[in-house]
Design a binder for these strands. Structure first.
Lengths: 117, 117
DNA sequence: CTGACATATACCGATAACGGAATATAATGC
DNA sequence: GCATTATATTCCGTTATCGGTATATGTCAG
């Protein structure tokens, strides 16, 4: 067994920075492949391959337009990621850090654990 | 060149489901390795290896406690993920989808692009 | 110091991603 | 049909993951 396929889910697909860049480049609307090639400054086959991965996890849709293929963002598969990280949001919010500290202190007093270190 | 290292950043570290499970198991507080082994039902070396990855990206901290090692969650490195996905939140919110549709329509009218399809 | 327990590391095989280069497919124009 | 443009696919080498098994490190008890 090896690492999960990049096409296994959005988590894996989006772990690659270039693929995030591609998605970022598509926020303003659909774009042909060559547009992305120019924008990201990487080889065309590379872009096509990354787009395939994104397509397999449903993060982009394609539409034929003459000899071009217009790729469009479909961010819905990112929702599970959003939902998962959201559960941890409190951890980097300073306000919550303070609250956590206070709660921890209260808990320790409650336990009466005065055994020095 | 191959795939980015799992220890490259939180995106890669968290792409693995088991590592997300480990983080999830640590939300209630620090736990020794064996606790996680039992909880996740996977081999101990596997857990240790996943914990190493999580440690290298700063998602967990360790504390020695006798012959045990207590691992504690540190979710701050997840913030970049949160920030990134947040930008796409509108895409799966139906309200925003509607708003987008309206805006698109307005834009098209403004352009006066009446060329049928 | 020896044995038991807790955890980490090393080694192995299988899998596949990534980038690069070459080539295949597809549509347009003449 | 042939050349050109746009994109996709294939082949290749390098690299690193992941799980498994065995073993090393470290700590406590007697």
């Amino acid at each position: 067994m090896a690492r999960s396929a990049t096409t296994a889910d959005a988590f894996n697909a989006v772990a690659e920075g270039r693929r995030r860049q591609i998605l970022d480049a598509l926020v303003d609307g659909e774009r042909p492949v060559n547009d992305l090639v120019t924008r990201l400054g990487i080889a065309q086959p590379l872009v096509s391959k990354h787009l395939r991965v994104l397509r397999e996890v449903g993060l982009v849709d394609v539409r034929d337009h003459g000899r071009q293929r217009l790729y469009q963002l479909n961010a819905r598969p990112l929702k599970p990621i959003h939902d998962w990280v959201k559960g941890y949001e409190r951890s980097w919010s300073e306000r919550f850090d303070l609250l956590d500290a206070v709660l921890l202190e209260l808990k320790e007093e409650e336990n009466g654990d005065g055994s020095g270190e």
